[in-house]
Design a protein around this nucleic acid. Structure first.
Lengths: 159, 159
DNA sequence: CTAGAACTTCAAGTAAACTTGAAGTCAACC
DNA sequence: GGTTGACTTCAAGTTTACTTGAAGTTCTAG
């Protein structure tokens, strides 16, 4: 009973904390895969546990599943991913994550200094700058093209 | 033409970068309000600009609109919010934002050290710990109750 | 005063990420 | 070998945060 070679869906669910229905959904969108028993039941490789963990980590970062699927496409389909495979993936997300953290930090500072201080002038306040929402993560700087910035610049004295 | 006292919906949309349809939606869920002209068209107070900016900031933080609405309930309904009003609100979110940033930072570090390094043992790796997903922001530590933690602890050698 | 742009409401549609339910099949234990 | 729990598929429902479209009204410039 210790360390089964292949996991049933409820085992994977129990170990990953992800509902069976969600795991089936992940399979339906190509994020994970499973072998089948003669009776058509799913049996997951142990490496799937790691995959699921990475999926949840990505979601915490704000990465949509479609983007995760894209990234997973770079992983080997047949053999289990190696450490190097996972590392390539982590490097790819690391930058985006750094950016996202940066945006949130700026927002935090603004939240105190701009809203909190009572400086009700909206000029040059990045909290009010739509450009700062370019933090969707996943596609990169989509927002940065359309020069939405400086649109919310306003004279002053808005309560 | 400089600095109108009340804004039309397209003016507010233009200045905030938020689509008119979204603004109407915000009104429908009680996030913003507008006076009406004799002909039933919306005229927004200038303070609405700030409200909308705060809504977008909250979304960047990952706060759902329902939670924003709750927070806004603490703002004065009649008079325009003062700096102190906004500050109370910002203090309330500041903590949550700090937490969220912290979670993402831990995730970033793990993303490199745990996945990247090839230490494929999953024990004590917070990337694989469902507890770390307690970052929903808004309700506080909902996840932290159900002791989901230590569920994903696994023996080792998962690829 | 009239054309056209901008506005109104309301219903329905969309996308993501699932969950739920029905109806049936498989596996494990005594 | 039967029964109970776990599994299967498939369709439909849910939530959030909107957008789109239809059908009609109002505002503003000439």
């Amino acid at each position: 009973m210790t360390m089964p070679d292949r996991l049933t869906i409820s085992e994977l669910s129990g170990r990953s904390g992800v509902a069976p229905s969600a795991l089936r959904y992940y399979e339906s969108v190509g994020l994970i895969a499973a072998d089948r028993t003669s009776g058509n039941q799913r049996r997951y490789r142990r490496s799937t546990l790691r995959r699921v963990a990475v999926i949840r980590a990505a979601q915490t970062m704000g990465v949509p599943l479609a983007t995760v699927a894209e990234a997973f496409a770079a992983l080997p389909g047949q053999r289990d991913p190696t450490a190097a495979d996972w590392e390539r993936l982590s490097r790819r997300w690391r930058t985006a994550l750094d950016e996202r953290i940066h945006v949130l930090e700026r927002l935090r500072d603004q939240l105190t200094s701009c809203i909190g201080c009572g400086c009700l002038s909206l000029e040059r306040c990045s909290l009010f700058n739509p450009q700062d929402r370019a933090s969707r993560l996943g596609q990169g700087a989509r927002y940065l093209l359309g020069d939405d910035s400086a649109k919310v610049v306003d004279e002053s004295r808005d309560r």
